[in-house]
Write a protein that binds this DNA or RNA. Structure first.
Lengths: 137, 137
DNA sequence: ATTAACGTTTACGTTAACGTAAACTTGCGC
DNA sequence: GCGCAAGTTTACGTTAACGTAAACGTTAAT
């Protein structure tokens, strides 16, 4: 079940990061590529982990949070105790993500408004009556 | 038109941050509260700015990005040049936010899956035809 | 008047997440 | 063999976003 492998610079290229970054993730225990002599060989599962890490980072997670998150998919689900704890964890994460979605929606609404004002101002710089936006200050 | 003002500890309390954090934001030019003698007096607009900053932080923005974002609402929209640049900026931000939403939705889907597996494993740990989770002996 | 609870400035410390540089080794194209 | 590109380790540097501590001022109650 061992598919294609990748060099570090291939992955760096693919994800738009430096090799230093990838080695740093290994240093922190987020990935563990095989070695062929001294050189690192990245499996597809390594690739996916990096992808998940970067996805986490895009929404503002720390590397530690990324690991915690990824480890949920790959659980050492021994006993019921741990399972229940994991479910709690999942619930907290979901709450947090939903809050983030809400934040994003609010910001998107703000952007719409700003853009509207801009375009209006560009189009009819003088033809408008007065401030149609009772928002801030 | 000057409403209620707040002390630094009131705001720190309200937002669940330390006073150091609020002073730090001022140090970085993100807010500029008035003074009454030596003491800072925070207006409601200061309060809102802090709220917006923290919202930005929740979705992983840096403080600088937060400022940039907030300043969009409060534009020095002088000439058409600047307006067009602002619109471009808005568009880029929107793209980024939409990507983040996508990331979040993917993660939420992952969480659903994990939780499903957990609950299944908890509920039918013995009543299932066969152990869906291969333990080691 | 003293203490307590708040505020202030100044300044050094800390953590995360890499950047950057130096000094190797290794495979390969000529 | 030689150079060169791509890999490696080691180690110090950097930036953001605060934490933490010291030393001090100011009001309000005891």
């Amino acid at each position: 079940m061992n598919g294609k492998t990748h060099t570090i610079s291939e992955l760096a290229q693919e994800f738009g990061v430096t090799t230093r970054t990838i080695r740093f993730y290994e240093e922190k225990g987020l990935i563990s590529p095989l070695r062929q002599g001294q050189k690192r060989l990245y499996s597809n599962s390594d690739r996916v982990r990096i992808k998940l890490i970067l996805r986490g980072k895009r929404i503002g997670m720390s590397l530690q949070e990324c690991v915690d998150f990824i480890d949920m998919y790959d659980p050492e689900h021994n006993n019921a105790e741990q399972l229940r704890s994991l479910i709690d964890n999942v619930k907290r994460r979901r709450e947090s993500l939903l809050q983030q979605k809400k934040d994003i929606d609010d910001m998107l609404a703000g952007l719409d408004e700003v853009q509207g004002l801009c375009e209006e101002s560009l189009a009819g710089g003088r033809t408008r009556k007065n401030n149609p936006n009772p928002e801030k200050h």
